[in-house]
């Protein structure tokens, strides 16, 4: 993670603030910073989203290509996540510095979308054993201001929600060779049960959501969980070098579930609202 050095005095200030349920930026423990999100902003992609929360800036581009299904899963398509922590975000990511974090984030994404309950890979199959869709989800971290996991989770969901896959009009086997005809129409992915990722960061005796970089430095352990809109949890992993008590863990899980459900609903509402502007919407892009 990025280098932020805090003195013990500064750390104690943050800690006391969190104890009093009043954080440095005026938020309460369970409050997120305001987010800005825009989808369909990259013309070369099949779906894209950009998310801005605090100083964190995430860009997700989605490409859809044709592939051959895995031999052991002949009627399933493929979904792959690539995360790039570029050195433009912080110098700490230079060279191989960001690799560990990138692996961590992509592993969480893979785990979150793994269950059929969240993402049904069978919908990506065109001809069993022969042809399937492969969705590449490329995540680019442009700026790093804390809470990367949640930001990436939301951005990926928004990007997948905006993804349009060409409609297949005919798929036949011609002498053992697959033959596919596409139309100009597009179909959208069924995003109704996609997960989002919630990080609960334990600082002192309390836990908070959406930590800033400074708050992340004060924390020794956090829980990253992915919540499905139906209330199920599709992955949990503990990060950081500290340990937690059993009771705290269950409380964190419960809080994560509540927040996850709320965030999921808000996100879907916002995306629907954006969708209503239609194709004529002016793209905001990178201008600020």
């Amino acid at each position: 993670m990025a280098e932020t050095v805090l003195s013990s005095g500064e750390k104690i200030f943050i800690l006391h603030g969190i104890d009093a349920d009043f954080r440095n930026d005026g938020r309460r423990r369970c409050e997120y910073r305001s987010m800005e999100i825009e989808t369909k902003l990259m013309p070369q992609t099949h779906g894209s989203a950009r998310l801005h929360i605090g100083n964190t800036d995430i860009l997700v581009g989605i490409k859809v290509e044709l592939d051959i299904p895995h031999a052991d899963k002949p009627n399933e398509g493929k979904l792959e996540f690539f995360v790039d922590c570029s050195a433009t975000a912080t110098p700490a990511f230079e060279g191989k510095g960001g690799d560990d974090l990138a692996t961590e984030i992509s592993n969480v994404l893979i785990a979150a979308y793994q269950t059929r309950n969240a993402f049904d890979l069978k919908t990506l199959c065109i001809l069993p054993h022969k042809k399937c869709w492969k969705i590449y989800v490329d995540v680019l971290i442009l700026q790093c201001g804390g809470n990367l996991f949640d930001a990436v989770g939301i951005a990926v969901k928004a990007a997948l929600n905006s993804t349009e896959i060409p409609k297949i009009t005919a798929a036949t086997l011609d002498g053992g060779e697959p033959d596919i005809e596409l139309s100009d129409d597009c179909i959208q992915l069924d995003t109704s049960n996609y997960p989002i990722i919630i990080t609960l960061c334990k600082i002192g005796d309390n836990y908070i959501v959406d930590p800033t970089l400074e708050e992340e430095v004060c924390s020794t352990s956090s829980i990253v969980m992915s919540v499905l809109p139906n209330g199920k949890i599709s992955s949990v992993v503990k990060l950081g070098c500290g340990s937690i008590q059993f009771n705290t863990f269950t409380k964190m899980l419960q809080m994560g579930e509540i927040i996850g459900l709320k965030l999921n609903k808000t996100l879907m509402d916002v995306l629907k609202e954006e969708n209503q502007f239609g194709r004529q919407r002016r793209i905001f892009g990178f201008l600020k």
Partner: peptide, 16 residues
């Protein structure tokens, strides 16, 4: 010995 959880790793789809 300290009643602490040092790591959890969950994968699947399970309610709380």
């Amino acid at each position: 010995q300290h009643n602490q959880i040092s790591e959890v790793f969950l994968i699947g789809s399970i309610d709380t």
